[in-house]
Design a protein around this nucleic acid. Structure first.
Lengths: 193, 193
DNA sequence: GCCAATAAGTCAATATGACTGACATATTTT
DNA sequence: AAAATATGTCAGTCATATTGACTTATTGGC
């Protein structure tokens, strides 16, 4: 083991010890960069954030894909299939299977659009609402305790941080979505159940 | 569209307008809760955060699983297969395929452990380092600009927020991992390439 | 009323990344 | 010598995604 290699290993976590005078040093700095830890934190945080709902969904024979469909339909009643495809960015075929299961098992209700009867407007049933709320609640719990432990301004900061992590081109869509304007749809509620 | 329905839809995002005197109101509050937007932000942020590397990986015929293996081996040279399984929480069989590809294509080098020759110590080659750095750089870029736009204290706060989002039981492992102590391994570097 | 466009559903085939359970091999420890 | 350990491998399954082509129902323009 040469000095160069042992320096590479020991110094990896110790940015203060480096001078980065060469290109190779600069490359190593990328790995030494303490922000790399944030990449890892983001990965682990997301993994654990989805693990809670996953465990509940498994009891229903559902997966993450079902969760997403249920969630966005719950939040945006009257959503069209096309809107959902646009939000989730998956193909019609990928959506079809999970949506069919949710409809067949009575979690989601489809109704032809009032003005355009080709459209299938989507609504959650009471059963779907219960499951969606259950999943949301467990995620809110984790989110709330994380924000609480991160300090008083954590919510606003987490919000703007997460929003800024979204690709520029996606931000307008996400912004209008979380503000309740899903794809400029003409949502009207539905006698769910 | 009746008044009731339009109120239902418009009011869904307007917690201030509610009184939540009944159980049904309380359930609706969950959905009205403005923190629900954070759940969605987290989903979209993670999706876009992984989209950048995914595009690069696709050029190599790799996927996200390869990225994770390459990343953690790069960050923790000399990692054992067992350590990697413990970090990624996948099965040996799931790891085997991606690891084999990375080894076969020369991104990762395996060497029998010095003390225990049953162990396969993992190291990135120069080629693996180049790819890993490329992927890290694009993620750091997004992270840096997000933190910059979120304000001066954003990094520390994002760090503690993300860390608190990790399940209690996982925190010690993640903490030691991001501090450079992967599974108390006796990492030594390797003539990479 | 005819025809093109649109919304949605469906078919067939494929890929990735995960899983389980069993078993093989090399090596170390007891 | 036997047990335990680290890894590798085989066979089969599942969930989620993909592409491309095609069908059906409905709408809207001419």
């Amino acid at each position: 083991m040469t000095d160069i290699f042992s320096d590479g290993v020991a110094g990896r976590r110790n940015p203060a010890a480096s001078k980065s005078s060469t290109a190779a040093d600069a490359a190593r700095d990328i790995q030494r960069h303490n922000l790399v830890g944030c990449i890892e934190l983001f990965y682990f945080a997301y993994r654990d954030f989805t693990a809670d709902p996953d465990a509940i969904l498994a009891q229903y024979g559902f997966g993450r894909a079902h969760h997403r469909v249920l969630h966005f339909v719950h939040r945006n009643p009257g959503l069209k299939v096309a809107d959902l495809l646009d939000i989730l960015r998956i193909t019609k075929q990928s959506l079809a299977r999970v949506l069919k299961q949710l409809v067949d098992e009575g979690f989601i209700i489809q109704r032809a659009g009032d003005e355009d009867r080709r459209e299938r407007r989507l609504y959650v049933s009471a059963k779907g609402t219960r499951l969606s709320d259950k999943l949301t609640q467990i995620q809110l719990k984790r989110l709330e305790s994380a924000l609480a432990s991160a300090g008083p301004d954590a919510e606003a900061l987490a919000r703007s941080f997460l929003f800024a992590m979204i690709a520029d081109k996606d931000r307008p869509q996400v912004e209008s979505l979380i503000n309740g304007n899903a794809a400029a749809n003409t949502a009207s509620d539905c006698g769910s159940e």
